[in-house]
C-alpha cells in the first residue's frame, strides 16, 4: 500500500555524509576531540586567528619605522634576529616565532577547509529561489574568498620581501631598500593595497566572530566586540596601506 518510502534521519545516516567520520567511543586527547568537533575547530580557528592578529599588529608596528628612516628599520630587523640572545643563539627566537605562525596558519586554513566541506554537505540541495540575507554581511559571507586572497598574497609577500625571489633589487637584511624598491613598482603597490583591503574585511568579521567562537560573551562588553573588530581592522590596515602610497608619493624617501 505504500509507494512513498519514509525518509527518517538517524545519527550516522550515510545520507548526511559529514566531513568527519563517526566519532570513536570514549574520550581521547582533548586536542584530538577538538579537531573532531566543529565547535572545537571553530575554537582552534579563533585561537590561531588571535595569534595571526597579534602577528599582523606587530608587523604593522614594526613597519611604521619606515617613517623614521632606513637606519631605524634595519636596526629593528636586526633586533628581531638578535632577540633573546644570549639565552638563545641568534635567529632562533625569530624562527620559533615563525614556526608558531606557520602552525597557526596551517590550523586556521585546515579548519576552514574542513568546515567548508561540512557546511556544504549540510545543505546539499541549495535554495532554488534567491535568498534575502538580513544579518549576514559582505564580510561574513566572503571570509573564504578574503582568506584565499590573503593566503596567496602572503606567498607573494614572502617571495617579494623575505626570500627576495620576486624582487630583482633584493638585498638580504636591507629592509628599508627592499620595501622601497618593491613598492616603487605600481602593480606591487596595488596588489599590496588590495590584499590589505581583503585583510581588513577578513578582520572585520573575524575580529568579532572570534569572541563568539571562544564563548567570550558578557553583557558588559558585548557592544564593544564589533567596535573592537572595526578598530583593529582599521589600526592594522590603514597604516599598512599608507606604506605603498607613501613610497609612490615619495613621503618615504628613496633608498639611501
Amino acid at each position: 500500500m505504500s509507494a512513498a518510502t519514509r525518509t527518517k534521519l538517524l545519527p550516522g545516516d550515510p545520507q548526511l555524509d559529514k566531513a568527519d567520520e563517526g566519532r570513536p567511543a570514549g574520550r581521547s586527547n582533548f586536542l584530538v576531540e577538538f579537531w573532531r568537533s566543529d565547535v572545537g575547530k571553530k575554537w582552534l580557528m579563533a585561537v590561531s586567528g588571535l595569534m595571526l592578529m597579534g602577528f599582523v599588529l606587530f608587523h604593522m608596528v614594526g613597519n611604521l619605522k619606515l617613517y623614521l628612516g632606513a637606519e631605524d628599520v634595519n636596526h629593528y630587523g636586526e633586533f628581531l634576529r638578535e632577540l633573546l640572545v644570549p639565552i638563545l643563539p641568534r635567529t632562533v627566537a625569530l624562527w620559533l616565532f615563525r614556526l608558531g605562525l606557520v602552525a597557526a596558519f596551517a590550523v586556521h586554513i585546515a579548519a576552514a577547509a574542513s568546515l567548508t566541506k561540512t557546511n556544504r554537505d549540510a545543505r546539499k540541495v541549495p535554495y532554488k529561489s534567491e535568498r534575502d540575507y538580513i544579518a549576514a554581511n559582505f564580510a561574513s559571507r566572503t571570509m573564504r574568498m578574503t582568506g584565499i586572497v590573503i593566503a596567496l598574497f602572503l606567498l607573494f609577500h614572502l617571495a617579494d620581501l623575505t626570500w627576495g625571489r620576486a624582487n630583482p633589487d633584493f638585498v638580504r637584511g636591507d629592509v628599508y631598500c627592499n620595501v622601497y624598491y618593491s613598492f616603487s613598482r605600481p602593480w606591487v603597490a596595488i596588489v599590496y593595497i588590495l590584499a590589505n583591503l581583503a585583510l581588513g574585511i577578513h578582520l572585520y568579521h573575524g575580529g568579532w566572530s572570534l569572541f563568539q567562537s571562544l564563548g567570550w560573551n558578557s553583557p558588559r562588553f558585548n557592544p564593544w566586540r564589533r567596535w573592537f573588530a572595526i578598530g583593529f581592522a582599521l589600526v592594522v590596515v590603514v597604516p599598512n596601506i599608507s606604506f605603498p602610497i607613501s613610497v609612490l608619493t615619495e613621503v618615504i624617501g628613496p633608498c639611501p
Partner: peptide, 29 residues
C-alpha cells in the same frame, strides 16, 4: 552529526520568531 557549523553570520537570530539571541551560541561554545 546532522548539521553544519556556525560561522557567526547572525542570520539565525534574525529569522528566529522568538528572537533568541546568538549570545546563547557563545555560551554553548
Amino acid at each position: 552529526e546532522f548539521f553544519g557549523s556556525c560561522t557567526n553570520h547572525g542570520e539565525c537570530e534574525e529569522a528566529c520568531p522568538k528572537e533568541i539571541s546568538i549570545d546563547f551560541i557563545a555560551m554553548m561554545n
